[in-house]
Write a protein that binds this DNA or RNA. Structure first.
Lengths: 347, 347
DNA sequence: GTCGCGTTTGACAACGTTGTCCAGAGGTTA
DNA sequence: TAACCTCTGGACAACGTTGTCAAACGCGAC
């Protein structure tokens, strides 16, 4: 078994080139190129000789050289916040699926919510000459992308808008979703509702807060600022904030959690308490229906976000011009029980 | 004015090169290269002129050309089964983290459990001349990789072993984990235990089945073949199989689910039944502790799998030779309740 | 003034591929 | 037999970068 592998005694790390194949097959360089790329104008006999040489040498075309020559890389970059966040899994997958349909590879990386790291990653991708970029931004100033975009790197922002530049964008309807969620709680009798959100500099967090306030205002309900807490989604912070709202001087009877990570912590906090507290979470998650009470959520369609963004990107790459477009993906309230709990009697 | 205009009005899609920068700065090509790469031997004055030209033109080094010239791409490929599967999120993240520490980019894609697609993807990555590959195999024959490995592409297999070639491998202890899980159920009084697994051609599924049989045998318990069902993890199939075991002539009193997707479906099936059935799942998942009863699981450390594999890969890239290594990552049984249910009285 | 030495700089080839263009073989027609 | 076409195959330049090597320069010492 191993001796066959050793049979080809090439120098470790250096691979045969078309030139080697041509020499071995006794044909010209361009003929090999033609065979490799399935171009016409090669007799079956010549083609067979070349194919034999290719397998014998273990030749594989060097795409770096090809890219250099052709100018297009057939790859796109995806920069997201955290590869491990389950919310981005389907999005990632959807983008890859569309890329694959267009014969492109996907290069990706996480920014870890760090603007500097986002920029570093994006520019590294640009240096690789990706044809396009799908970005879930962590930064709030994307002017550093201007030269790249001017040079023809198609760019689409997803989930959050670009900062200080005009660009194609695909967003969930965070405002509307949050308003629906809070209206749902109000419809079930709640008056004192807490909002647990992500850091305020994140666009979606701000939008969801805006939706919360809008729903409260539409119902004529005052908002005690002690009911609003934005910040890191670290469990400790969320736990602390939730507890403060629930045990404060004007305790809330319901919570609206601004994203999946916050919801998970909120569920844990509420599970430890004797009396049930209503909860609606932004983002759906697996098994939300099996917890008791089942968790009512505002679901985003992450796969559709990704698919839409990638499709938009390839449309640009296909040469569709025009001003930056912004597409909004609707959210969907899924009542499951936790949002339908009435406030405790006498509150 | 004219040269400014010429500078800004580049043809859309074509970027300035070092040659353009050199012309504008009034220096030689190599001097620009030196500045871009921070090489010594450039006077501060010259360097400033070059830097100015770079920003004015929006120059960014073309890494395709650089790669072609240097031979190393500073990128590694990760091929996994499904980017959207939450189990692979932390693994993906861990690999990226290690890659980043080594200054490498991560290119990835999903095989969708399709051997042909895996091969296509892997070879595309080889054509890009990735320095190394981390593969979660879908195929069971990897001889197609022999020329690539011989040519110096470092390769590490994770989660499942390579087929028909020798290669570095990092695995979870599926056998031991499954045996622990089933032994746990037996210790709580169960005698008739069902196994719901993934397709038998998948190594981990086979190993877990082996663990199941080992635990049963060690306890001197016979296995009714109606208690064993391997196949697709599609919810319909799992539901059907589980129902058959629970309602069959010799009904099981406990289930062991072979992976996270199966566990989720099993939880749903059991939730619909009047009397509780014990369950242990392979793979931990979020909120497993909040379902009632909380789900007992055998947890794999996906992040550690990824970290170990990537570290092994870069060690090879750093020139460490030697025979293929196989590393095994232990699993951990997390008792939460669902595995501690006793069998119904009189069974 | 010239020599030697170290530093800064640039000309040029090479990396492996593809596009352009031309040469020669073979066949058809006048 | 010459003129003309078609079809296959190959020579060569170019893509944008980096490594090699040598030229040009400044400067102190003889």
């Amino acid at each position: 078994m191993t001796d066959t592998a050793r049979g080809t005694s090439r120098r470790y790390g250096s691979r045969p080139t078309m030139k080697d194949v041509a020499a071995r097959a006794g044909v010209g360089l361009k003929t090999v190129s033609r065979v490799v790329n399935g171009e016409p104008g090669v007799t079956p006999d010549t083609e067979r000789r070349v194919q034999d040489a290719i397998t014998a040498l273990g030749f594989r075309r060097n795409d770096s050289a090809r890219i250099l020559r052709k100018g297009r890389t057939a790859s796109i970059g995806l920069v997201l916040e955290d590869l491990a966040d389950p919310f981005y899994g389907p999005l990632n997958r959807a983008v890859e699926e569309v890329a694959r349909d267009h014969g492109a590879l996907l290069i990706n990386g996480s920014s870890a919510e760090d603007p500097a790291r986002e920029q570093e990653l994006v520019l590294a991708l640009c240096a690789r000459r990706v044809d396009g970029l799908v970005i879930i931004p962590a930064a709030d100033d994307h002017r550093y992308l201007e030269p790249e975009i001017a040079a023809g790197v198609a760019t689409v922002f997803v989930d959050r808008p670009a900062g200080r530049i005009e660009a194609d964008t695909v967003l969930s309807d965070s405002f509307g979703g949050a308003r629906d969620a809070v209206a749902h709680l109000i419809a079930h009798g709640h008056r004192r509702i807490g909002f647990l959100g992500d850091q305020p500099r994140i666009h979606t967090a701000a939008e969801r807060l805006r939706g919360y306030r809008a729903a409260m205002a539409e119902a004529g309900l005052p908002v005690d600022e002690a009911w609003v807490s934005l910040g890191s989604t670290a469990p400790d912070r969320v736990r602390f904030a939730a507890t403060a709202m629930l045990d404060g001087p004007r305790p809330v009877t319901a919570l609206f959690a601004g994203n999946n990570r916050v919801t998970v912590t909120a569920v844990r906090v509420l599970a430890e308490r004797p009396r049930p507290v209503a909860l609606v979470g932004f983002d759906d998650f697996e098994l939300a229906d099996l917890i008791s009470p089942a968790i009512t959520v505002v679901a985003q369609d992450a796969a559709r976000l990704g698919r839409t963004a990638a499709t938009m990107l390839f449309r640009r790459l296909d040469g569709v011009d025009g001003p930056p477009r912004r597409e909004e993906i609707p959210t969907r309230l899924i009542p499951r029980g936790s949002g339908e709990l009435p406030p405790p009697a006498g509150s």
